[in-house]
């Protein structure tokens, strides 16, 4: 219980620090929402009036204080680029899209990495393992946007499995492909990590014991090695989730999916700081909570970490 309170406290602290830093950065970079909104042709008077209207003239600390006060009551303010739309509404429409996208990616990573890694270990240093290893290296090296374009071309144009650019509603079928483009490099990384973890476990003494009990190679892998090998992978997967969120920014752009990532990019160029603040806040919370979740999972998988261990 104490640990949970401690974690919660550090979560709040992290979020506060990050929100302040984002605010500061936004006040340092040139340009502001008024300029972005009115364009380069606007007269200085128009800009000044707009700045006044958007309350951009107050000192940073005052504006941060105002924002924080609102945020604490759950009011993240209004978007500066879309007049009359609250940040809450904006996020409410975009968040589910990105969450589904990230969810599919994560599932793909977990469901594909484990069997592929075990397959590689089984055919260790033989042809299938070598082919998959090289393929994995290529996938890790290819830039994310290029992989997106490749998938659009193969599945969208050649195989006509989806219509690129025609995203409507919350379509799982459409989201599968951007999710795939996010997942592939991460799968390659996870397989590689899991493979070395499994190989490390295979040289442990308890594996020899299992063999002496008469366990076959498959039984050794399935009953003994996998669970031990997955322990370090849990941390790795938590990091991967953070990377999925980063990857979704590119994928949403390439597949024109109206998610959080795209909103983030447009909001940054529009200097729409209330929206950017909210998105950053959200991502920070997810990443820090994952850390917490990993701790709990560890306890579940590794009995040595449970009470008394």
């Amino acid at each position: 219980m104490q640990a949970i309170v401690k974690k919660l406290f550090s979560l709040i602290l992290t979020v506060l620090v990050i929100s302040f830093l984002t605010f500061i950065i936004f006040s340092i970079i040139p340009g502001n929402a008024a300029l972005a909104k009115l364009g380069v042709d606007a007269s200085p008077e128009q800009i000044a009036a707009m700045e006044e209207k958007l309350q951009l003239n107050d000192p940073v600390i005052i504006r941060y204080g105002r924002w924080l006060f609102g945020a604490l009551r759950g009011d993240f303010g209004e978007s500066l680029q879309y007049s009359g739309v609250t940040v809450g509404e904006l996020l409410g429409s975009r968040l589910p899209v990105t969450m589904v996208l990230a969810g599919i990616s994560f599932l793909l990573i977990v469901l594909l990495s484990v069997p592929v890694a075990l397959f590689c270990v089984k055919f260790r240093d033989r042809l299938p393992d070598r082919i998959l290893t090289v393929l994995g290296q290529v996938m890790m090296a290819v830039p994310a946007f290029f992989l997106g374009i490749l998938i659009t071309y193969i599945f969208g144009l050649l195989l006509r499995a989806f219509r690129p650019g025609a995203y409507e509603g919350l379509s799982l079928r459409y989201l599968f492909f951007p999710a795939l483009s996010i997942a592939i490099p991460k799968i390659a990384m996870t397989v590689r990590f899991l493979k070395s973890s499994v190989r490390g476990e295979l040289s442990q003494d308890y594996v020899r014991t299992a063999r002496a009990h008469g366990a076959s190679e498959d039984q050794v892998l399935k009953n003994h090695v996998l669970r031990n090998a997955l322990i370090p992978v849990i941390t790795f997967l938590a990091l991967v989730i953070g990377e999925i969120l980063a990857g979704s920014i590119v994928a949403e752009q390439v597949f024109s999916v109206p998610g959080l990532g795209r909103l983030l990019i447009t909001s940054i160029s529009a200097r729409d700081y209330p929206v950017v603040q909210a998105i950053v806040m959200y991502i920070t919370t997810v990443v820090v909570s994952l850390d917490f979740l990993v701790d709990l999972l560890y306890r579940l998988v590794d009995p040595r970490l449970r009470r008394g261990g």
């Binding site: 442990q204 003494d205 308890y206 020899r208 014991t209 299992a210 002496a212 003994h224 669970r227 031990n228 322990i231 998988v301 590794d302 009995p303 040595r304």
Partner: peptide, 11 residues
Amino acid sequence: FQEPMTSLNPV
């Protein structure tokens, strides 16, 4: 075996 500390599966 010789190593009772490591010869059992920890999980």
